[in-house]
Write a protein that binds this DNA or RNA. Structure first.
Lengths: 224, 224
DNA sequence: GCGGACCTTGACGGGATCTTGACGCCCGGT
DNA sequence: ACCGGGCGTCAAGATCCCGTCAAGGTCCGC
């Protein structure tokens, strides 16, 4: 279910958006101010955000900035006609598209669809190579000396997190949160088990890892 | 993916068009008035436009004129029976074909296909061959060892999505969104059922698929 | 309104995958 | 030398996911 977050201070608009989006089969949540919007994003990353620029607490642009600090979720901005400065600023800050109020619902829906399509499309394909090992993360294809190697979903998930920060340290807690969810903090044995499996499949000498390096007491890193 | 823009002021007709076109594997966007139609064309040139002549804001002919000012995108015009003047005028303005309301869906689809074909299509026709199996996606023709094989619309839709990304991974969610709509995310049993049917019809040994490969927990891919 | 093709939905067995606990090793601190 | 924390390894049981089948249900043409 595609999950849409709509943010506006006008309950009537939220209602209209909600009804129309739900009628098209989207899962919708609404927020009346920036604070709760950020909270919702935090606990359940939407597939797209519809963001009004005029909010009671935080400025819409401020919300966008905060979002962009840690996610690339597509954002379609709503702006009243006279707020053209804000609009430009919002696009600069990484909004994906904008619609001016009063807006035509069909147009908004079209732009939402377009935003989802673009984001679901090709993010930069993520490929890591080291020695005779090749990891195509977006395609979920791993080869070693030309041979296909099968990784399980969880193994891929871990590899993906490490690959996205290739060379940099990823703390144990971050890995656990990312792969198993925020409730997991101390189950470092999961990491031990899976890193061992990954190494067994990919490392030349699994007992002397050259790609998947342990930083004892801190975390792991993927070096090429 | 061939991209169709449907323009009509009647939401019911848009819905019907949308459903039928999507079911045939087209990517569809809709517009309820001339202004948003032009906007969509502006941001993402369609491969064909279905244009109703009776629109709330701009006249359909006016829309067509504006389109023709900068593009040769094929346009199939919809016209109510009594608007014969408009129809003639539309053809003069460069419409490629017309269909009178109430229209037969199959006829409209045929004319849409014809318009796309005349315009040179959206690129090379999509054909996949593997072993003794041949899949002509654009023509909706499947053969196996020379024998015709019948695929249902939904089966074709799935095959098309996989064929357009031949060799690459298509995630379960993408397939579900593409074929069944954004509300479907967890109905992976649909995929299981249909992939089984497709394999039964096309694979040499359906229990050991060589074309329609499962990536457990992630998605499917079509390899040749 | 009848029949057939197609789609939806639930159930189930088997196999892959995940979870969990136990154990031994290395290493730094005492 | 002893001890404890952190790590790698292993294996067994639980769980999840896939392929398969079959029973309705819906839609469309005759």
């Amino acid at each position: 279910m595609t999950f849409v977050l709509a943010v506006d201070d006008d309950p009537a608009i939220l209602r209209t958006l909600s009804i129309n989006l739900r009628a098209r089969g989207y899962d919708v949540e609404t927020a009346g101010d920036g604070r709760s919007a950020l909270q919702i994003v935090d606990e359940r990353m939407p597939d797209v955000v519809i963001l009004d620029l005029g909010l009671p607490d935080l400025d819409g642009v401020a919300v966008l900035k905060r979002l962009r600090a840690y996610t690339k979720v597509p954002v379609v901005v709503l702006s009243a006609r006279h707020e053209s400065d804000d609009k430009v600023e919002a696009l600069d800050e990484g909004a994906d598209d904008y619609v001016t109020k009063p807006f035509d619902m069909e147009e908004l829906l079209a732009r939402v669809r377009a935003a989802i399509r673009r984001s679901g499309g090709d993010g930069a394909p993520l490929v890591v190579e080291s020695g005779d090992v090749r990891l195509d993360v977006t395609e979920r294809k791993a080869t070693r000396a030309g041979e296909n190697v099968r990784l399980t979903p969880t193994e891929w998930h871990i590899v993906e997190v490490l690959a996205r920060r290739e060379g940099r340290l990823v703390r144990q807690g971050e890995l656990l949160h990312e792969v198993w969810g925020p409730a997991y903090d101390r189950e470092t044995n999961y990491l031990r088990v899976y890193l061992a499996q990954i190494r067994r499949k990919l490392e030349r000498d699994p007992s002397k890892p050259s790609m998947f390096i342990t930083d004892p007491g801190i975390g792991y890193r993927l070096v090429v």
